[in-house]
Design a protein around this nucleic acid. Structure first.
Lengths: 226, 226
DNA sequence: CGGGTGATTGAGCCCGCTCAACTCTCGTGG
DNA sequence: CCACGAGAGTTGAGCGGGCTCAATCACCCG
């Protein structure tokens, strides 16, 4: 997962703890103006292998980035929320695909423009490095989860993370379905559902509908432990 | 895993396809001179949580970077071979530990020096970004493997990668033991052993000793497929 | 109300884990 | 030169966590 910067407006799935950023510019780089664009729920933003022309910032909504194998197995690498940037590449092609989890507004920045700025401006260049390193940290944490955690731990860790990014005081409205959660956690959707049910019957969380989750942070946290 | 640059000398585990780099300097940055240091087999280079003072380049040998959970479960994130850089952090503390898999010679570069160069030199800064992005790509590939691949596919993919990085014409001498392979692949060492045995009886590879592996690249590749 | 999608729950199976025995290699010393 | 032991690797038997397949349930929108 990757989330750190944030931008706010009235739309759903906006991080409530976000500080308002100046609209349409990238980070604090006034010479970079993004073009607004909107994707519908489930719509593809770019596909694996496609030419990488833009970098995106989420204004509102949620985007998932993923890889899929020939036989359909899918691994979601991250969910990008309001304020998050995604779509960076070193090569000319996207190595992941990106799709809108819900209706999502983004800003598009031309990749070449960003590169031009970075090749003149050390400050901007430094910020790009920081961004890549954060994503790397997230990816390593994700690998630990996928390689060495049980199903229950994965689900608990996921809920804790989403609560931190989207929720407040233990309550979250999950923007994505069980299938997406499963593909992020390296599980099946049935297993995700069972784990949530188990946390429920252990009184570690309460549900209203399938999406709205109220966590007992202490108990759920104790499942993850370390 | 992360490997891209390389340096050569007579020691074991040196990538045979490496082009010679000027000794003691980082990448092509003549103002950065590294201090040579040697670690014995199994020796810790730095621990998780320790202050991050240096960045390292492997001259010869192999280093593993890993995270371990409270109960001892360990996830290895990468093996660093001759020429590879490791030890970069954004914060002041290491988020992983690093240990020498075999006796390993490294060059140490002061982190603050690198940061100083990067804050003056856009070129160097750009190279740091590239490096981080490569690591990110590796980490994402790793996550796909951990989340969505079977044991046999993981082992096959691992052997293919190691052959590419260390071997030639299908033959590799694995520098790490089964336990390290298992902790990299999110498996147990018994499962790794069984998968290698299976590939052996499927005539996809030949062994001489446990470490020297001769791959039938076509057959092993067919196991990974995509 | 009925249809459709997404979530939950159940039953049974299988892949990979656990525990344990055995083998192989290699270094060391009698 | 062989005996021995230690560490690493292999193999076997049995278990169990998570998967598969399938039925049921909940919740929207008509």
């Amino acid at each position: 997962m990757s989330a750190r910067t944030a931008n706010t407006d009235g739309a759903p799935w906006v991080d409530p703890r976000a500080e308002p950023a100046e609209p349409r510019t990238l980070a604090s780089c006034p010479e970079l103006i993004g073009s607004p664009y909107t994707y519908g729920q489930g719509e593809e933003i770019y596909g694996e292998g496609e030419e990488s022309e833009f970098v995106y910032r989420v204004v509102s909504g949620v985007v998932r980035t993923a890889k899929v194998l020939g036989d359909g197995r899918r691994q979601i690498h991250g969910f990008h929320l309001a304020g998050d940037l995604f779509g960076f590449e070193t090569s000319n092609a996207h190595r992941l695909n990106a799709e809108a989890v819900v209706a999502t507004r983004v800003l598009l920045f031309r990749r070449r423009q960003i590169e031009a700025v970075a090749s003149r401006n050390v400050e901007a260049s430094r910020r790009l490095w920081d961004l890549a390193m954060r994503s790397l940290e997230d990816a390593e944490e994700h690998a630990l989860l996928l390689g060495r955690r049980t199903a229950l731990e994965r689900v608990a860790a996921f809920l804790m993370t989403m609560e931190k990014r989207l929720g407040g005081s233990g309550s979250v409205e999950l923007p994505m379905g069980r299938r997406d959660i499963a593909d992020y956690l390296g599980l099946t959707l049935e297993t995700v559902s069972r784990c949530i049910s188990q946390l429920h019957s252990d009184r570690a969380l309460a549900l209203s509908g399938a999406r709205r989750v109220m966590l007992d942070l202490g108990r759920v946290g104790r499942v993850v432990e370390e």
